[in-house]
């Protein structure tokens, strides 16, 4: 039986391992933390058994354990797992919102838009450029809080896909769709008919609720979950 003293890496060597991971495209801090510990534990064990073994040589030996694909498989699978994790929470946040208060809010928006159109003969479709700009400004300001934290989030993964999804939905319904409606009509004044009033009320109700959920409710819920999820990394 061999008795040997366990080697311990210096802080400089630990920092070297972090740089080594970044050079091998491991940019997420939660993955880095785990792999630094793995590499360090492996190196320490090898150096304890063979004290003459150089740090770099021991590192290469441990790195071989990750196979020919290196860290790429670990990062790829982690991205997949986290995408699934966040998607699950996005769906949960969305479903949490589909409760009775939503019906009251929907009725309120619908009645307000309906009344604006009938009593004041206000035709939203003849004001789409202004409305589109206002809606867009609102969407940006509501999600501003989350964007401020984006730098931190990118260190840990993967809300990029959520921005892509919510951004395209808001852009399509808030800008492209109303703009097209005006363009199809050759920029002429659209006549305010009863079916149009109903359609517009439904459309605005759906759009404003989606906007609230996508730009405010879900980002805030995600931020809360994110803080819970990554609080433990504050050790570093």
């Amino acid at each position: 039986m061999y008795i040997y003293f366990m080697a311990e890496l210096t802080t400089q060597e630990i920092n070297y391992l972090k740089r080594f991971l970044v050079q091998h495209y491991v940019r997420y801090e939660d993955v880095q933390l785990e792999l630094v510990d793995h590499l360090a534990s492996g190196i320490e064990e090898k150096q304890s058994k063979k004290p003459d073994l150089k740090f770099e040589d021991a590192l290469q030996e441990v790195y071989k354990g990750f196979g020919t694909l290196g860290f790429s498989q670990v990062v790829k699978e982690k991205e997949k797992a986290m995408r699934k994790f966040w998607q699950k929470h996005i769906i949960k946040l969305f479903l949490d919102f589909l409760k009775p208060p939503l019906i009251f809010i929907a009725i309120l928006i619908f009645s307000t838009t309906y009344l604006i159109q009938t009593f004041y003969s206000f035709n939203f479709w003849n004001h789409t450029p202004y409305i589109a700009i206002m809606v867009f400004a609102l969407a940006i300001s509501l999600s501003f809080k989350l964007h401020m934290k984006e730098d931190i989030m990118n260190k840990y993964l993967y809300l990029d896909s959520y921005y892509g999804l919510s951004g395209s939905i808001l852009f399509t319904f808030g800008y492209i769709f109303p703009s097209s409606a005006v363009n199809f009509n050759g920029n002429e004044i659209i006549e305010l008919t009863t079916p149009l009033i109903w359609f517009t009320s439904f459309y605005l109700t759906f759009f404003l609720i989606s906007l609230y959920i996508l730009a405010y409710k879900i980002p805030n819920g995600l931020l809360k979950k994110f803080n819970e999820q990554y609080k433990k990394y504050a050790l570093n």
Binding site: A81, M82, K84
Partner: peptide
């Protein structure tokens, strides 16, 4: 167990 298999499995189980 190769590290390239272990960590993806751990991350998958954690996400689930």
């Amino acid at each position: 167990i190769k590290e390239g298999s272990l960590y993806p499995l751990l991350h998958k189980l954690e996400a689930n």
